Amino acid sequence: MRLQLRGLTVEVAGRALVRELDLDVGSGEVVGLVGPNGSGKSTALRCVYRALRPTHGAVLLDGEDSARLRLRDSARRVAALTQENGADLDFTVAETVALGRSPHQQGNQPLTTRERELCARAMHQLDVAHLAHRGVLSLSGGERQRVLAARALVQEPRVLVLDEPTNHLDVRHQIELLSLLRGSGLTVLVVLHDLNLAAATCNRLAVLLEGSLVAVGDPWEVLTAELVQRVFGVAATVVPHPLTGDPQLLYSLSPASPVPSPASEGSLP
């Protein structure tokens, strides 16, 4: 399924958090949203999974305005793993993962054999099967994050949006989760702060600064030393990964320059 953001603008209290964002994510493509804190990444994602209504513009799913879909139909197409995923009720891990089937069910009908197998497979993929009978409130932050990722997969979406999904995860589980996304065949829009992980995971990167899209392209096109300096205010040397050839950044601890605004500096290369 193709995901398109068309002229997406979000204004709050007279301030534009996202400005006329145009971005295409092709079917089966993994696109990473990167940028400094407060650049509008999470706000853009909230519009995709309909937690926030844009002031202007639209989110299109295969050319159809998602705002015109019933919420249930939208949830069958788009799943989200957000920063705000909390758990107030102490469901078991198995129960929490099974909640991903809710958009596909009517009332309180029991899971089918296929759905139980789907839940078991997702828990195995995210390495939480051994926690199936534990309450989610007893889990560590990383364990809970993996449970919620399994729930999103169980939803069987065609589009998956994730906001900093590697938060709380150790190195092994970061790599496993991002490898799973890369091989899932889903259309994925993901916010990542680790630029090296983003370069290794994403087909393309889109860079936001103060709500505006300032660069988009494959990781080698986007992650130049000049752009990293101008957008993030840090000095970096870009080198190829010795095994994969993906761009990797080696950061300098020298003092950073102020981050310029798009209005004062113009668009980035």
Rank of each mutant, 00 (worst) to 15 (best):
E95N: 03
T9H: 07
R146H: 01
N203E: 15
V214I: 15
L3R: 01
R144I: 09
E11Y: 02
D65M: 02
L45C: 00
F232A: 05
P219M: 13
A199N: 00
A129F: 09
L33Q: 10
S27K: 10
S254N: 09
G38P: 01
L17S: 05
L268T: 10
A120V: 08
N108V: 13
E164P: 00
D127Q: 13
N203M: 01
P54N: 12
M1S: 13
D73N: 07
V234L: 01
V154N: 10
P110E: 15
N85T: 11
R151K: 11
Q106V: 14
L45H: 01
Y49M: 13
E117V: 06
V231K: 01
H124W: 12
V12Y: 13
R72Q: 14
D194K: 00
L17T: 09
R68A: 14
S254L: 15
S66W: 11
A75Q: 11
F91C: 02
V147Q: 04
G7A: 14
G142S: 06
N203R: 11
T9G: 10
A236N: 04
L3C: 04
L131C: 08
V159M: 03
A120W: 07
S184N: 07
H168W: 03
P247H: 12
Q83L: 03
R204L: 07
L186Y: 11
G14I: 12
T244W: 08
Q125E: 15
T9M: 13
Q83P: 00
T113M: 09
L180Q: 01
E11R: 15
Q229L: 14
G233K: 10
L268C: 14
T9N: 09
A263F: 07
S140P: 10
S212I: 01
R15M: 11
S102L: 08
T113W: 12
T112W: 05
L177R: 03
P219S: 11
H193E: 08
G142F: 02
T166Q: 02
T244F: 07
C47Y: 08
D163V: 06
L45P: 00
T96V: 14
E221F: 05
R121G: 10
S254R: 15
V190P: 03
V214G: 03
P219H: 11
A98N: 02
G100S: 09
V238C: 01
S66F: 08
G26A: 15
L227A: 07
M1K: 06
M1P: 11
E265I: 02
N196R: 00
A94K: 06
A80T: 08
G217N: 07
L3E: 06
V238S: 00
Q155I: 04
R172W: 04
V190R: 09
V78S: 04
L137Q: 14
A152W: 06
Q155Y: 04
V25Q: 10
T201G: 06
Y49V: 13
S212Y: 02
S42V: 04
S42M: 03
R15Q: 14
V171Y: 13
D218W: 03
D127W: 07
T55G: 09
L126C: 15
T224G: 06
R134P: 12
R172M: 03
T201V: 10
Q229P: 01
L250E: 05
L69C: 02
G141W: 11
A67H: 11
E226D: 15
H133W: 06
L268P: 04
V207T: 07
T92C: 06
L208H: 05
